[in-house]
Simulated assay, not measured.
Amino acid sequence: MNIDFTHKRVLVTGSTAGIGFAAAKVFLAAGASVIINGRTDESVEPAVASLLKVAPTVEGFVGDLGTAEASARLLERHPEVDILVNSIGVYGPKDFFETPDDEWERFFQTNVMSGVRLSRGYAPGMVDRGWGRIVFVSSESAINIPADMIHYGFTKTSQLAVSRGLAKRLAGTGVTVNAVLPGPTLSEGVAGMLTAGNASGDSVEKIAADFIAEHRSSSIIRRASTVEEVANMIVYVSSEQASATTGAALRVDGGVIDSIV
């Protein structure tokens, strides 16, 4: 299968590291022009410099897309894209009874409303051109709500509702909308969270496998996924070859969710 994004313009939000960065790298290697995004110059500039080694068709946008102001600036600077990957997200454990309103709001604005605003801004142009792809990077936590991250799971379930509903709203237009659901994935952020305070001397892969054995024992692969494995699903569902896949929740969870559908 030859996936080719020549002449396609891609925006990947929250893409200076982790899954978003890995996806941007694959898009570039497949011929796309890519806009990456981070909150600060200090994160965007080195990410762009690294991706320029893959292809020269990459540029950065600095802004916190959890805010309406930054989303408006992005839409003004880059009014058209062919593929939108809503990858920006915040996460972290916090007990339900210790999570204040402003933390719920921060998670909702970043994880959900960023994708709502950008989809609302970019989808009409995709419809006019008769082709487009919108991908929400959700999580297996959308289905398997973690007791220690209820506020996070709530936002990931919300993304599934938006992606499914928007796919139906855009029926017959040539624009597909899908959600990708990673399971435990060994991104830089997750690696840092798992190794914080761990003095065992074990590799991060071993620490992640032990975490999965204890907290995600239904995993079939019995290890954390790599960011590249998740990125491959994002890139595939954004391709011409995935033209009959829309309104779907595509799991890259290593079999954590115990379901045959």
Rank of each mutant, 00 (worst) to 15 (best):
Y152S: 04
L186M: 13
R169A: 15
Y152C: 04
S119D: 05
L166Y: 00
I134A: 11
V162F: 14
T173I: 00
Q159H: 09
K168Y: 12
K156N: 04
I150N: 05
A179C: 13
N144D: 15
V137W: 01
M149P: 04
P124W: 06
L181R: 07
A123M: 09
A171E: 15
G125T: 03
W131D: 01
T155C: 11
L181F: 11
A171G: 13
P146W: 09
N178L: 07
R129I: 06
Y122R: 06
A142G: 15
L166M: 14
Y122S: 05
S163K: 04
G172F: 06
T176V: 09
F154M: 15
I150A: 15
L166A: 02
L160D: 09
A142V: 03
V116Y: 09
T173D: 05
R117K: 07
L186K: 09
I150D: 05
H151L: 10
S139W: 04
V137L: 14
S187H: 12
G115V: 00
G183Y: 07
M113V: 03
A142E: 01
V175D: 03
A147S: 15
S114Q: 11
G121R: 11
L160T: 09
I150G: 06
T185P: 07
Y152P: 01
K168L: 14
I143A: 14
Q159W: 04
S187E: 11
V135K: 00
Q159Y: 07
G121H: 12
A179W: 02
N178I: 03
P184C: 11
N178P: 07
G174P: 06
P184T: 15
T173C: 02
M149C: 13
F136E: 01
V127L: 06
L170F: 08
I143N: 13
V127H: 05
L160S: 08
L166N: 00
V137A: 03
T185C: 12
G121W: 09
P124D: 10
S163Y: 03
V177P: 00
A167H: 08
P182A: 11
D148H: 15
T176E: 05
V180Y: 01
P184N: 14
G132R: 00
A147V: 13
S114K: 00
S158I: 03
F154G: 02
I134D: 06
I145N: 11
I143Q: 14
A147H: 14
S163C: 09
T173V: 02
S139F: 06
F154W: 13
N144M: 13
S158T: 13
R120M: 09
G121F: 10
I145S: 12
E140K: 12
S141W: 04
V127W: 01
G174A: 11
P124Q: 10
S138I: 04
H151M: 13
A161L: 13
T155A: 08
R164N: 14
F154Q: 10
Q159P: 02
